[in-house]
Design a protein around this nucleic acid. Sequence first.
RNA 1: GGCCACGUGGCGGAAUGGUUACGCAGAGGAUUGCAAAUCCUUCCAUCCCAGUUCGAUUCUGGGCGUGGCCUCCA
Length: 452
Amino acid sequence: MTKNLNLFNTLSNKKEKFLPIDNSKVGMYVCGPTVYDFPHIGNARPLVVFDVLFRLLKKIYGKNKITYVRNITDIDDKIIESSKKNNKSINELTKTITKDFHQDCQYLNCQKPSFEPKATDHIKEMISMVTNLIKNKNAYENEKHVYFSVSSFNEYGKLSNKNSKQLVAGSRVEVSKYKKDPLDFVLWKPSEVSDPGWASPWGRGRPGWHLECSVMSEKFLGKKFDIHGGGLDLVFPHHENEIAQSRCANKTDKFANYWVHNGFVTFDKEKMSKSIGNIVFINKLRENINGQVIRLALLSSHYKQPLDWNERLIQESQNTLDKWYNQFEKIDSEELDDDVLNPLLEDLNTPEYISKLHLLYDESIKGNKSSKVKFLKACNLIGLLEEDKHLWKNFKKSKVKIDESFINQKIKDRNNARIKRDYKLADIIRKELENKGVVIEDKQDQTIWKYK
RNA sequence: GGCCACGUGGCGGAAUGGUUACGCAGAGGAUUGCAAAUCCUUCCAUCCCAGUUCGAUUCUGGGCGUGGCCUCCA
């Protein structure tokens, strides 16, 4: 094992050498969607970033050595709310969104995680974790509610770098009357008759938000595991609470060793929010942009940095891939050199990696065969140029209502005009096709066309 | 108020104690009937002030500015 991966760890606030608990395998848990609304471009970022990490880990440790778990949270107050608002049953809503989410993942060319557990399939385990917490005196029941007692865990705040005093001072949380301490968070709460609920020692109810990740990471990865990922906004309170629950319930000194968090996506420099109405939904992008374009755009800045989503970024990524596809070829697998991989090993430096791709492309078009192979393999590693060239070129076909024989006839007409030096007519025909969404390029011996 | 991150050319975006990637845009050229695409060449930058240092964009301190978290969020 010569390849050394360094990762920035939120827990230590430093870049650290990555050392798995067991050198022969790696466990990674990434917070997946709460299925209450269609995924947006902000959700796409962790999907793609951790997909790249997943691919990289497989490259380093071997294909079958990585266990990647990404949950689906299908019970939550937001879901209940959305279901009421949209007059859809919970089941219908979560099924619809989950299906859409899976289409997004496929569209973004994300490899399937090893496991994709659902919260509602793990209520039993959650109840048993809460029971454990009560037994360990880290939680208390009050009027059918169960709360985690933050003061019982003295390392609370370590991940998010907060102490309880600050939290109380800055707190805008509505303090429930059932809580002993304003910082305590809910593990179990009663459900209205009309709302989803499960029988429990504390009456019919449902789990608190953070519980599913604690329970499901343990089930698939163990009480301690290597990497836990998610968006930067999950650091507090979600991940902080996960740590508290898991470590207290399991009586362990550690939970996840490396915490990796991605930065936010803004839209035209503004925060995406429902009230502004500037949320970019992935299923909308699916309509006329190839998923690889989104991928490249999302990887164009370092994962921890903020990323601004805008038309220009998409266009640039589109143009780059158009160019790169000139070198497309299906190649049989070959080991990728360490020097190519290096930027990714330094905390997933995708911008530097992409700049290397540009250099490899340059060598490749000059006829350097080994550079070409490297280029293509390197693209594939981050999920680019895996799709056939034909599919890439014809992505917009379904959108453009135009018959291919019509295009070919027009090109024939135009070339006849060109032979007769009737350039006026030739230009008119070119313009006509362009207006229909077809662009013409005259090559040396032929005229090719593509969708705009 | 507390905590954190960031400030690099026209734009995006890496890296670095000494010659500052890469992409886009711009300029020039090749090619073309003209284009487009492609290829070649090329111009342009480290927020301000002080300190450490032979040397700072990089390290330290201060300032100014931007963003995030502290409430549901990727």
